[in-house]
Design a protein around this nucleic acid. Structure first.
Lengths: 207, 207
DNA sequence: CTCTACACCAAACAGTTGTTTGATGTCTAG
DNA sequence: CTAGACATCAAACAACTGTTTGGTGTAGAG
């Protein structure tokens, strides 16, 4: 009955995702029981163990009431639209957050990987190509080794703060602005202190 | 010693905010004890009660391990730089948060006028000129009579949901997309049901 | 048929939870 | 000085936590 197993697993996963976003805290094992229609805590305990073993879920050392989704877990859940659901041609009622399937706050500010996030206000116009303009607000996630091509926030020479795309080239790193009027900056890797990765850009609609 | 009281209160509030963002789950009362340097669970229990009474914190019906900040609570925390908590690198403080007092949460989600806000996912490319593109997340504030020129979300003929700029022309209204390839739509005012006004656009940085 | 694997259940366990009770010390107002 | 408000503590409580133990039913492999 491997299929139905997966069924229950992902149901637990979705329930976990929903509750973690909706409320402030993840549910307890017995809450999950009710949520997914099971009658024994042990069953959920069992599934949680598997989910953790397979890397979908991580429990903090703390233990009590702290099963949180990993990246992998969120991917699975992501298949079912977790974020806003505006399906074409419906009234807004179908869209409003009433039953709260989505919490913008937690989506923006709580990292799935446990890394911390903070906000920055953009100065300068070097990143207009990446849809980042002066005055925009950036949600930055702490990340000391982001992937190549990521938009990052970095300290240059211990002084200047810049927002650029990052590319590694041997012992050097290339910082590429997304504005044709600016030129790439290439510096030794040790001169660069990567502070974090830009995960979201927030701004008003321009007119 | 009312001052020191407030001191401990806001210390608890900050600890709560930090842990809620950092980990997946809020701390327990005894964890808060250690976190803010108290020795009795009752003391924290007492403070939490006050914080809840004053509207800074809300505990879910569930009770266990679920003290979460309210908007009001976030605002207080925001005064002391919560989001600008850039530990490792100095230099970032220079850029972090304009005047040091800013809360993304309350800025995005709490309307000053008391109107409700909700989020929408964008479909279609008619608003690229207003820095709104397909897949973006919109923070929309309920507003039945937004000012001319505002970017609004509206129901057209009770069916289609559109995002356009609004201009009134006598008994008609003109809906202007911000994309040269699309043309204006002019309809009788009574055919249009304005749902709200777009206050923020949220999206990842493009590469 | 037997063996193993799986999903599920019920009951009991020790540890932790929020909460209550009772008490101490320190301020301020009357 | 007394009375009240406040912050703090220690100890004990029932309720709930994750976990363990033992067991049932179903499916497929040998």
């Amino acid at each position: 009955m491997a299929e139905q197993l997966f069924e229950k697993r992902s149901e637990i996963l979705r329930f976990l995702a929903r509750r973690s976003g909706e409320k402030g805290a993840p549910p307890s094992i017995r809450e999950i029981c009710k949520g997914v229609g099971l009658k024994s805590a042990q069953t959920v305990h069992h599934h949680l163990g598997r989910l953790e073993g397979d890397g979908y879920v991580r429990r903090l050392d703390d233990r009590t009431r702290t099963p949180v989704l990993t990246e992998k877990g969120w991917e699975v859940v992501g298949e079912t639209p977790l974020l806003g659901r505006i399906s074409a041609g419906r009234g807004l009622e179908a869209v409003a957050m009433d039953d709260g399937a989505y919490s913008l706050t937690s989506e923006l500010l709580s990292s799935r990987s446990g890394r911390r996030r903070y906000t920055l206000r953009v100065e300068g116009d070097s990143m207009t190509g990446a849809r980042i303009e002066e005055g925009d607000l950036l949600v930055v996630e702490e990340d000391e080794s982001p992937p190549d091509g990521a938009v990052i926030v970095a300290l240059l020479g211990g002084e200047k703060v810049t927002v650029k795309s990052l590319y590694r080239e041997g012992e050097m790193v290339r910082l590429r602005p997304h504005n044709n009027e600016h030129e790439d900056i290439v510096v030794p890797a040790e001169d660069l202190c990567v502070q974090g990765r830009v995960v979201y850009v927030v701004h008003p609609p321009s007119r």
